[in-house]
Design a protein around this nucleic acid. Structure first.
Length: 676
DNA sequence: ACTCTGAGCGCC
DNA sequence: AAACGGCGCTCTGAGT
């Protein structure tokens, strides 16, 4: 089924590496997948009545045989079966059941869009008044983004009803039945049913015709998923993973608190900064042949582009993905270093940077305003970000509306300042130390790295991976400063230390030897080759996972001895059109996902601890390798013993996958920005 | 009016 | 052929 050659197709690799059985229990996966590209017709489970019938009417007996007492989630199982595939119901049903419900969805979309258009016409408004149509940016629809029509799926039926009840035919009819609405080029008109076709206008039922198969197929999909999970020894992993659902729900509904006063304070400061910088930019531009610069609200627009590249004739050293000259923060950094001091150009670039930073921060604050809800305590508000445990191709959760995993901690723009505990509460955060470095280090047995983690107080590295690499890449600069803790960082904080940090992240995230990006970050040709020569074991591990990914299509997390010692969570790696997995992906996915598996298991045990001790304390935010806690305020860090216990629990989860771990603790009594 | 993409930028 | 991983959000500007 799966031989190791370059021409293997995407789905031929979906084989369990242990049993060598296809991960797919369906009869012919290839033909099913092909149907994704060929819209087909599905037998719609249709009910003649207007009202959506009970599920049991559609699928008799289902309720009796199905274990509904346990919350099953096809998103969780779908992700476990193939982390890299679309997990929306339409795609999953197509893949696992060979049913295409897309046409029903499309019909609903078409009808809703048409109804929305109709409601906006003068004739309609004259007859029925102004109806409210969902629009982007409305205050009480904060999560309405592009697919606003989805908020109006009730509309076709409502329009049909109003049109029918307003018609003369309706009142004239003894045996009252809804008529059909016919769209004509000159508007809308009514015809009695006999002139159209037998039955009703589709708008009466377009929503239920969408909803019925939607709920119906879900049951069969769950069955297909479960079969697949059992067949591939993934059931225990699934059950463990399902514990996440109620816990994330609880986290979401509790929310995080923020203080409006602090928010206003920042908004005022950033608004002033943005306006001042923007004015200066425009003034400078006007000195170039009276250039009328229109600054974008953020990022880039044609006016700014024209001024930078055509009028000022700046030559960007970096190109965007599409090959156009870029002017992002790296380019700005470049020009700050190279443009002549006191030149108009330099001032412009500086001011543009100030404006962008202020605008970006303001943008985030605006989005927090959009989503925040009043709390019971004066001037405090709540934000309930949505957490999606199947939102990434790895085991990370994604966060949405707003994304609370990207709250700025930039100097001068630290937005964590607005978040913080209510009066009478306090926040704590615990994060893993070097989680994503420790995993490959211990897994590969890379002694040099392990020593750093195990001797955090010893010279020359004092527990710092950055310093290790600095010693390899800049030996002449490093070794004279090796004996004193912090000396290298102090002397080269904005140059070599910063560069080696950038290098480390590039290397950690898989920058390829030969591409030169890591070397560029380190400002030293050959840097990556030097580091890789020292870290042979880690390099071998990288190659191992690249090979595995090419062979099987996925890599696995390190097996958890408490859940399933035989296999880990399979994480699928996408292939390029030439059939091979990009070599930057496999180790990355493996490490990132193992890290998140550990953190997820830790969350369960921490929750147990909190409840077992009857604490009025909660996990309120999760940021990949970090948990934020809301505790009742106790003076003199009176909760410290609990936090230390939790820290121990979190670290102990490393034992399940054989990675020794430690955690760091921060105390936020006033706000999230301030830590002690 | 709606749809889609690219660019830019925040976090880990 | 080309390689720095994972995300979400906003605005732009062109296309439909």
């Amino acid at each position: 089924m799966c031989d190791d050659n370059d021409n293997q197709t995407y789905w031929e690799a979906d084989v369990d590496p242990f049993t060598r059985k296809p991960l797919w229990d369906s009869s012919d996966l290839r033909s099913i997948r092909k149907t994704i590209l060929v819209p087909g017709e599905m037998k719609i489970i249709h009910n003649e009545k207007f009202d959506v019938p009970m599920l049991d009417n559609i699928l008799p007996g289902l309720m009796d045989e199905w274990p509904w007492d346990y919350t099953h989630d096809t998103l969780i199982s779908g992700h476990l079966i193939n982390s890299n595939e679309p997990h929306d119901l339409t795609s999953q049903v197509l893949i696992h059941l060979g049913l295409n419900i897309k046409p029903v969805e499309d019909k609903l979309h078409e009808a809703t869009a048409a109804a929305r258009r109709m409601c906006r016409t003068k004739a309609f408004i004259a007859q029925f008044g102004q109806w409210r149509i969902a629009e982007k940016g409305e205050e009480d629809l904060p999560s309405a983004k592009d697919a606003t029509w989805q908020f109006d799926t009730f509309l076709p039926r409502m329009v049909a009803k109003y049109q029918w009840e307003a018609s003369d035919a309706y009142t004239a009819l003894e045996n009252r039945q809804p008529l059909s609405i016919i769209e004509k080029s000159n508007g809308w008109e009514w015809r009695p049913p006999s002139e159209v076709y037998e039955g009703y206008h589709p708008w009466w039922t377009v929503l239920s015709e969408y909803a019925n198969p939607d709920s119906g197929v879900l049951c069969y999909l769950a069955k297909a998923h479960h079969k697949c999970l059992h067949a591939n020894d993934l059931w225990s992993i699934y059950l463990e993973r399902m514990k996440l659902v109620p816990q994330l729900c609880a986290m979401e509904s509790r929310g995080a608190t923020l203080h409006q006063g602090r928010m206003t304070e920042l908004e005022e400061r950033f608004t002033k900064a943005s306006e001042a910088a923007g004015r200066l930019c425009k003034n400078i531009a006007s000195r170039y042949d009276n250039y009328k610069l229109e600054l974008p609200k953020n990022g880039m627009n044609n006016s700014l582009r024209g001024f930078l590249f055509d009028t000022m004739r700046l030559e960007s050293p970096i190109k965007t993905d599409s090959g156009a000259p870029s002017f992002d923060k790296n380019v700005i950094e470049h020009f700050m270093l190279t443009l002549p001091t006191k030149s108009k150009e330099l001032t412009f670039v500086e001011k543009l940077r100030e404006k962008r930073s202020a605008d970006t921060a303001l943008g985030y604050l605006t989005s927090y305003r959009k989503y925040m809800l009043p709390d019971e305590v004066m001037d405090f508000y709540l934000i309930h970000s949505k957490v999606n445990p199947t939102g990434t191709a790895t085991l990370r959760n994604s966060s949405q509306d707003p994304n609370s995993q990207q709250v700025s901690k930039k100097e001068g723009f630290n937005l964590r300042y607005v978040f913080g505990p209510l009066p009478g509460r306090e926040w704590w955060s615990i994060d893993y130390d070097n989680l994503e470095l420790r995993i490959p280090a211990y897994e590969s047995g890379e002694r040099v790295m392990i020593d750093i983690f195990e001797k955090p107080n010893d010279a020359p590295y004092f527990g710092s991976y950055h310093l290790l690499n600095a010693s390899i890449v800049y030996p002449d600069l490093f070794w004279p400063l090796a004996e004193k803790k912090g000396a290298f960082k102090e002397k080269y904080g904005s140059t070599y230390y910063q560069w080696i940090k950038n290098f480390d992240f590039a290397d950690q995230y898989g920058a390829m030897l030969g591409s030169g990006t890591a070397d560029l970050a380190a400002h030293k040709p050959g840097a990556q080759a030097m580091v890789q020569a020292r870290l042979k074991e880690k390099n071998k591990l990288n190659n191992k996972y690249i090979d595995l990914a090419n062979k099987w299509g996925f890599v696995e997390t390190i097996p958890d001895i408490e859940v399933n010692p035989r296999r880990g969570y399979p994480v699928y790696c996408s292939r390029s059109k030439w059939g091979r997995v990009s070599p930057t992906i496999p180790l990355n996915y493996h490490v990132q996902s193992t890290a998140c598996w550990i953190k997820m298991r830790a969350m369960f045990k921490v929750e147990e601890y909190l409840r077992a001790n009857k604490l009025d304390a909660y996990i309120i935010l999760e940021i990949h390798d970090e948990l934020i806690f809301d505790f009742p305020f106790v003076k003199d860090k009176g909760n410290l013993h609990h936090l230390n216990a939790i820290r121990k629990i979190m670290a102990s989860l490393g034992d399940c996958v054989g990675i020794p771990l430690t955690c760091g603790l921060s105390y936020h009594p006033h706000n999230w920005a301030q830590a002690s």
